[in-house]
Write a protein that binds this DNA or RNA. Sequence first.
DNA 1: GTTTTGTCCTTTATCGTCAAAAAACATTAA
DNA 2: TTAATGTTTTTTGACGATAAAGGACAAAAC
Lengths: 293, 293
Amino acid sequence: MAKSRNVYKQAYNRCLALLCEHGELPSEPELGATLGVSRTTVRSILSRMDEQGLIAWDKRSKRALREPNADDYFPEDETDSVASIVERAFMRRLLSPEGTPGGMINELELAREIGVGTSSIREFLIRFSRFGLIEKRRNSSWVLKGFTRQFALELAEIREMFELRSAAAFVALARDHPAWQALDRIEAEHHELIAGIAERYMDFSELDERFHRLIHSASHNRFIVDFYDVIAMVFHYHYQWNKTEQRKRNETALKEHLAYIAALKSGQRAEVERACRRHLKSARETLLASVPV
Amino acid sequence: MAKSRNVYKQAYNRCLALLCEHGELPSEPELGATLGVSRTTVRSILSRMDEQGLIAWDKRSKRALREPNADDYFPEDETDSVASIVERAFMRRLLSPEGTPGGMINELELAREIGVGTSSIREFLIRFSRFGLIEKRRNSSWVLKGFTRQFALELAEIREMFELRSAAAFVALARDHPAWQALDRIEAEHHELIAGIAERYMDFSELDERFHRLIHSASHNRFIVDFYDVIAMVFHYHYQWNKTEQRKRNETALKEHLAYIAALKSGQRAEVERACRRHLKSARETLLASVPV
DNA sequence: GTTTTGTCCTTTATCGTCAAAAAACATTAA
DNA sequence: TTAATGTTTTTTGACGATAAAGGACAAAAC
């Protein structure tokens, strides 16, 4: 079979939103840029919109003919790439009782279960292997190492090493470096989130990721920057599963972030180190508390 | 097409050596264990040896009938796995003038050039991406980041961080931990190599890798241990290319290793840190000296 | 002259297939 | 009863085919 049409479908849905908003659509190259797809895909989208009577498409004019309704949108689950479907399904397995250390992973079985080809599985497993949760034996299957306490400890150790160094590098950045402005914006977002914490505490993890990635980017080291992918993966999936005390945890973390940001702005290296360590310590504890044993 | 028969061929060659040595072969399971292959492969090997008149195979008895000659061995290049062929070919490209930063990698073209299927290339590139030398754009090709001075600096930074920590962990190991014995053996090998440095200086890099991997293993952290793969890859390929002053460099490194080992044995943390830093400093300089600019 | 569109070619994503290699099971010899 | 051999079943490794998505280039519109 050929590739799934998820790029097209997802872009189509986003394009419907644009249509609602503006009543017409811009030029093909511009549309491609806003949607993040090629002109070929843009033209497929326009073709369908024309066919469905949503727009009158004639060369440069793409005028809306009617309001899109719910039926015009592609179902959400068809807009995911195969890779992300595999990822989700695999993580669910990994975090379930099936994810016992030592267990074997059968590529064909996994492919059947998820409903994709074996090469998608193979490629996913290779990509995923860098997270240190699975390991390959030559000419044999993958072995699950499991989401264990030991894993969490090893992860936290590296994270602390990297983040302390990145934070130190951040302080050393020239004051006119764009990262300082980015930090200001993120600080403001923290205040906003704290103000509306009651209903928006779920938005924390996205802000958290952006904050830490900003810090890590100051290291100017691709290995440090890339390592954050491991952390992000863990947080993303693990916290979907464990929601106990989520609001309180997030509120604490937000405050720690603000102290951390203040330390960075103060330019005092010792202050930065203290604030960074404090936050990483509670992050580690939170993670450990949610690991099976 | 099906998979290449490299496992069989390589095991066959090694089995011929065993046959020369002992005049007969042990039981199938034992043979499988020594050769590191399954019984299925062992039986394929025995079948062929029987056909070729090398052994008289009847149930448990596998008696040698004649001495194997050069023709009995499979050609060496047929014993490489497709993955290693791809790796070598790709690294040659990367270290050649073609490996310019910013260049695109075309999967199909690469597959044709090397003479393998596209999925072998894809899987290799995914595996290789963790080395930080290439990067993927969604639905588009891989981009070469190049083997640059910047890369070497980033690599050295992480290496120093990890090795200092591992060395500190090594010193803290209980004196009856098997790692200490392994260190003694490696120390002895260093003395042997220095004694015969004139003709054996090429053997250094293998010993070097074993030494550093031993140190790293004391960290008990999979991310640190796995990171050594990146370093090993760089050293393996880069030094195949740059052989200037190789003998002298290796001799210096051997002496630094011995000082480093002595420091570890002394149990003095400050001593260890000093010896470790000194060695890593010259390793970094050597690497930087051999990078284009 | 620049941007947009129309057309065509290239490259990637995904799958099914088939032999190699491993693993499981059954049988026989010691 | 244990450990080997003989036989069958699973699972991985590698490939080619095909449609989706990207990209290039000429013609047309502003």
